[in-house]
Write a protein that binds this DNA or RNA. Structure first.
Lengths: 362, 362
DNA sequence: CCCGGCAGCAGGCACGTTTCTGCATGATCA
DNA sequence: TGATCATGCAGAAACGTGCCTGCTGCCGGG
């Protein structure tokens, strides 16, 4: 009857462990573990008793010990490409915030938590956290972090179609080419004769695909490309580039801005040059921000649906972690949504203030 | 000579452990651990040799085992109050994004990573991750999560002065009363006779302190309070409340909006009622968004300096975790910055387009 | 010659959990 | 009645590190 096996280092120190609960409840460690985890075959009386004692002692199982034993930590890394030393990207602020929010929510619903990690391959931080998998936002061509992770056998799901032969487990992305083509067609249908583009100098997938789609469209309809590039991580450079674009001799009568703040930048530049929107200049920008619903005039935006992307990425990753092979494809394309407002309609709606929405609901 | 102690389960499976490195290098486990962690007394030759073998085997120490042994995980929880089931708050989007970005950056610089966790006391997620400490954004009066965490002996630092007797380790906040008073004085100096407030129905510290400061100011200068409240997590309700405020018979000639989207909402409402800004209506809102620099007209904003708050919170927390007693006060007040633009100046600047900035540089 | 001291390393325990295996005990059935 | 079986629980082996203890040579001084 050696159940009171108190051969520990004397006094009752630090947190209560599973041993303390077992001793206090008069059962074995196995019984406590089974009772709390709903496993084994125990009568309800024992189960209740153990849970009650554990609650009374304020017992919390050690996450580290559980992770060590089971090999699963319940943690998912969230990596964002970084320009400069800040861990987040500047340009797609609202996009990232919404995507991360949806991903966090979806992960929590399945019992996982997200860990924010830098895209730099500083090993000291990466190897100090036990991950079950990783979400990578817009990885570069031969991302060293991704290759290192898959070499360790960790599942990696990327937001953004991986370029080259990046060996990700799965990916989710929009069809950026199709979105740009649809958008340009919309502008042309509204009467645009020369459509300009405000784009970035970075080589990430989004910028590259969108720009080439624009060039292809120009070639198809026989329009000379009119675009200005700027380093997208610099918010001031955007305003300058918008100004440059409208100051050109071959000034466009419609502009699409690839990045979130381009809408207000272009609007301000148009005012400086005395251009009325949408009469003299049609405007569309890619943004998740709701401010464009209340600007003067409201600006048509292309939404990349970050919420759906974040959710899809997490579902794919957790499915891979838990080894459940759902029928879900490992390459998912999320449709974009063109939210049409006054700035891209030559004849604004007369009766109502609220702008019409795209027929594609959600 | 039993160094080739390969009594493991047969084949070379999964990742290489410290045992494998020891066997391959012909040394003991202790020597490997000391060599990699820079401890013990080893000649440089041995140290180099061990590191080389570890690199060749692709050895990565198990974070779970290390955490179990040392009791430190290098993980910091980041908790945000939630309205509804989404883990983030809607209203202070840019504030949260900037604050989290700065906090992540500061934590990474000191070897820590951030884990996003919900404010709900669902234990299954909280107890599944080993935390060294937690950052709590704007905790409620008797936050059950906070009390539970400090009961476990974890340091907790809050963004936002804790109300009541919430036992946090340290906190960082703005002086919201002073900021509101300064702002109202600024509006009064610009000629405002009746200043209205757009506030929230929630009972968090920020909303409460700002509202009471407004009421005190009204009492002091002998003005009847004119304010509208709305549930701040609902973005549509903000536009409606802004409309309500300007539709009142005692319509204010200046408005301060407590939340980020209030600026565009109020601007849109002013247009609907034919009010010119700033001639007929002065406008200020609390926001971190840069869009208000390019609206028509540019809107004066109150910045809460989320970057400085995020950095300060992390420094205080890691100091507490590591037990280093710096001279830093455990209650820090970060000054706000009033970025004065056209919308709050009855006589807008004539010559230049760019608005003057507050003399308090940063 | 003997002994203290030190460099260089190995043995082994502990961290707290999960889980496989196995031993009693009572019930059921041929 | 004895064999079979389900039930209820305990023992103990891992999981992979970190670190305390201690062992072996070797050198120098008395």
């Amino acid at each position: 009857m050696s159940r009171t096996d108190t051969t520990r280092r004397g006094s009752r120190q630090s947190r209560a462990g599973i041993r303390d609960v077992a001793a206090a409840a008069g059962v074995s460690i196995t019984t406590v573990s089974d009772a709390l985890n709903g496993k084994g075959r125990l009568p309800d009386a024992t189960r209740r008793h153990v849970r009650e004692v554990a609650e009374r002692l304020g017992y919390r199982p050690s996450a580290a010990a559980r992770t060590l034993r089971t090999g699963k930590s319940g943690l998912i890394g969230l990596t964002v490409t970084t320009y400069g030393d800040e861990p987040f990207t500047f340009t797609e602020f609202a996009y990232f915030a919404e995507m991360a929010r949806a991903a966090t929510s979806a992960a929590l619903a399945r019992g996982y938590a997200l860990v924010i990690l830098p895209a730099t391959s500083r090993h000291d931080v990466w190897s100090n956290v036990a991950l079950d998998g990783t979400v990578v936002i817009d990885p570069s061509d031969h991302d060293p972090v991704v290759t290192e992770l898959v070499r360790q056998g960790l599942p990696v799901v990327s937001d953004g179609r991986p370029a080259g032969t990046l060996p990700v487990t799965a990916w989710v992305d929009n069809d950026h080419e199709a979105a740009v083509l649809e958008l340009l067609d919309h502008l042309a249908a509204a009467g645009a004769r020369r459509i300009g583009l405000l784009t970035g100098t970075t080589t990430d997938t989004y910028t590259r695909l969108s720009t080439t789609a624009y060039l292809h469209w120009c070639e198809r309809v026989g329009q000379d490309p009119v675009y200005e590039s700027y380093p997208a991580h610099d918010p001031c450079a955007g305003a300058v580039a918008a100004d440059r674009l409208l100051a050109r001799p071959d000034r466009p009568d419609a502009v699409y801005g690839l990045f979130d703040p381009n809408g207000t930048d272009l609007l301000a530049a148009a005012r400086r040059y005395g251009l009325r929107v949408p009469e003299d200049l049609l405007l569309v920008c890619c943004s998740e921000s709701t401010v464009y619903a209340a600007t003067e005039p409201p600006i048509t935006t292309l939404s990349l649906k970050p919420r759906r992307i974040g959710t899809a990425v997490i579902q794919l990753l957790i499915d891979a972690i838990e080894g459940i092979d759902t029928g879900r494809p490992v390459e998912q394309v999320i449709p974009t949504e063109l939210i049409i407002r006054t700035s891209s309609q030559r004849r604004p709606p007369r009766t109502t203030v609220s702008a019409p929405r795209s027929p594609a609901g959600d």
